[in-house]
Structures are given as structure tokens and as C-alpha cells.
């Protein structure tokens, strides 16, 4: 409120003609304050706010970008909800998210506990090694995984054949493709989450464990009764991050299943579908409609997250 008053006063003083122009210190502070934060808001409104509303606007048009726009009302949205490819993409996104996130966070926690053990030698090395996948170029990762999951000359199928199993067509099935993409996500993000958990583990006071040991609690009991409750906020944090990342998964499926998401559209995720509609098929109106629906889905998810978060907090 006080800032508004300051601006008002400044205006008034400018409006009076004969009076000697002066600006109060508080007004100056306000102006410089706004100036300091303005770069963010200017850039945000150009690259954030404007596209959001412009996307909403063009989602009511049929627009192949090299031609003219044609107003079609809500037709894009009507088509979207009856479009089996859209629902397939939504299903793929969730499927990949579930099979990548849940085991990933679980394994990351185990990894963090191992890295936190006192007996482990060369801790720095292992911590670095755990984090390394996260800074590897995604395209290079995808090419390697592509070679691992190849049907005829893939390492994985070779390993299966050693055990006398039939080769599996990873790229040509829903199951195989989702597993491959999920393993790429896991490989890349597990170490990252483990480092976050590790930081949380190290902030737990040692005396809690000492007290528990004296009271005769086993290691397992200590883990579930002390460790997990103490790092709960970090678990929530990683779940939220993984959710956002999982909803937006794009590069891995694009690199793994190629244009269109494969013959069954088994690798087609929502952002991938959006990209294909906009930049391959040039249906910008339709792509904008997808973008908005995706936006609403993420909002819905955030609300669910919020709900779960508050429940976990109240359990304390």
C-alpha cells in the first residue's frame, strides 16, 4: 500500500507547475526499486505472459504458419477431446512418468543412504560419479540407449540371448519403449535426487540416532522412524520436481522413437505431440490447444500435490 501512496505523491508534485520540482527520498526509493526489479518483469512479460495469452488466442484458429489464420472457434478443442492420439500421448506420458519416477526416487534414497555411510571410502568420487549422468549431453545419452535397446544388435538383447531368452523388440512395443525411456530418465536423474537426499540425511542430528541406539532400536527401525520423517520435506520436493519434469518429457522419446513417436505412437508424449503438431505438421492452432490443455493438467497436478503436501505436514 505504502508504495502506491509514494507514487501518487510523486505525480502530484509533478503536476503542480510553478513549484520547484522535488522528489522525496521515499519516491526515489520506490522508483529505483521498481527499476531494479523491472528487467525480470519486462522479460517475463515478453517471453512468459505474452506467449501464454497469444497461445490461447491462436488456439481458436486454424493456422498453418506459412498461410493465413482462419477463425474456427472451439473446434480445435472439440477435435482434441475426440482425438485418440491425444489420449494415447496422455497415457504414454503418465505411464513413462510412473515407471521412471517411483523406482527412481526409491533407488535414489537407497543410494543416498549408502553414500552417507561412515565406512565408505572415496566418498567424493562416488558422489561425483552419481551426479555425472545429469550433466551428460542428452542426445549422446539417447544414442547410447538406442544402441543398447536395438532389436538385432542391441547389447540388452544379446544379454537375453546368453540366458537363452528370445530377443525382444524394444522399439516396436509400448512396454519396451516405455521401459527404455524410463531407464534413460532414471539413469540421468537418480544421482541428482540422491545428492539432494544426501544433503538432507547429513542435516539430521546424530544424537537422534545415538538415543535410538541406546533405546535398543534396530537399524531398520531407525531408518523408518527417524530418517524418513526427517527428510520428508526433501522427498516432497523431489516428487514435485519429478512430476513437473515427467509431464514435460520430450527429448528422450523424440530421440528414441524418432518422428511421430514410432509406428504405434508408443513413444509419443504430450510435449512431443505438441511439437509435432506445431513444427512438423504446422497446425499451430491445434498445437496451441494442446499446450493449453497441458497447462490445465499441470495445474490440476499441482493442486493434487499441494493437497498431499499439506496432509503429510499435518501428519507430523
Amino acid at each position: 500500500m505504502s508504495t502506491n501512496v509514494g507514487v501518487e505523491k510523486g505525480k502530484q508534485s509533478l503536476a503542480v507547475p510553478k513549484q520547484k520540482r522535488f522528489t522525496k527520498q521515499s519516491t526515489k526509493d520506490n522508483i529505483s526499486g521498481y527499476l531494479y526489479i523491472s528487467p525480470f518483469f519486462i522479460l517475463f512479460s515478453i517471453f512468459g505472459v505474452f506467449p501464454i495469452f497469444y497461445t490461447a488466442y491462436i488456439s481458436f484458429f486454424k493456422w498453418p504458419i506459412l498461410g493465413a489464420k482462419e477463425f474456427v472457434g472451439i473446434q480445435n478443442y472439440q477435435m482434441l477431446f475426440t482425438d485418440p492420439t491425444f489420449w494415447k500421448a496422455l497415457g504414454n506420458t503418465f505411464s513413462i512418468w510412473v515407471i521412471s519416477t517411483i523406482p527412481q526416487l526409491f533407488l535414489a534414497l537407497i543410494l543416498a543412504v549408502i553414500l552417507n555411510q561412515a565406512f565408505l571410502k572415496g566418498k567424493q568420487f562416488f558422489r561425483l560419479a552419481a551426479f555425472l549422468p545429469n550433466i551428460t549431453s542428452l542426445v549422446a545419452v539417447a544414442i547410447i540407449f538406442d544402441a543398447i535397446f536395438g532389436e538385432k544388435y542391441g547389447i540388452l538383447n544379446y544379454a537375453l540371448s546368453v540366458f537363452g531368452l528370445d530377443p525382444f523388440n524394444w522399439k516396436g512395443s509400448y512396454f519396451g519403449t516405455h521401459i527404455a525411456i524410463a531407464s534413460m530418465v532414471m539413469w540421468r536423474w537418480m544421482g541428482y535426487n540422491a545428492i539432494i537426499y544426501l544433503a538432507a540425511l547429513q542435516s539430521i542430528p546424530k544424537d537422534l540416532y545415538e538415543a535410538a541406539t541406546i533405546d535398543g532400536a534396530s537399524k531398520t527401525q531407525q531408518f523408518f522412524k527417524i530418517t524418513i520423517p526427517m527428510i520428508r520435506p526433501m522427498i516432497i520436493f523431489t516428487v514435485i520436481l519429478s512430476t513437473i519434469g515427467g509431464m514435460q518429457i520430450f527429448t528422450e522419446p523424440l530421440m528414441f522413437s524418432g518422428g511421430g513417436g514410432g509406428p504405434l505412437k508408443q513413444g509419443l508424449t504430450l510435449t512431443f505431440y505438441l511439437y509435432e503438431e506445431a513444427f512438423v505438421r504446422n497446425s499451430f492452432g491445434y498445437a496451441s490447444a494442446i499446450a493449453w490443455v497441458l497447462f490445465l493438467i499441470i495445474i490440476l497436478f499441482s493442486i493434487v500435490n499441494q493437497f498431499i503436501t499439506s496432509r503429510i505436514k499435518s501428519a507430523d
Binding site: N169, G172, S173, G260, G262, P263, L264
Partner: peptide
């Protein structure tokens, strides 16, 4: 059309 052929090839 290419996808159509590949679906059959992959037995799907």
C-alpha cells in the same frame, strides 16, 4: 503409411 507397414512388421 510407413508406420502402418511397421505396425504389421512388429506384429502389433
Amino acid at each position: 503409411m510407413g508406420d502402418a507397414v511397421e505396425r504389421v512388421r512388429d506384429g502389433k
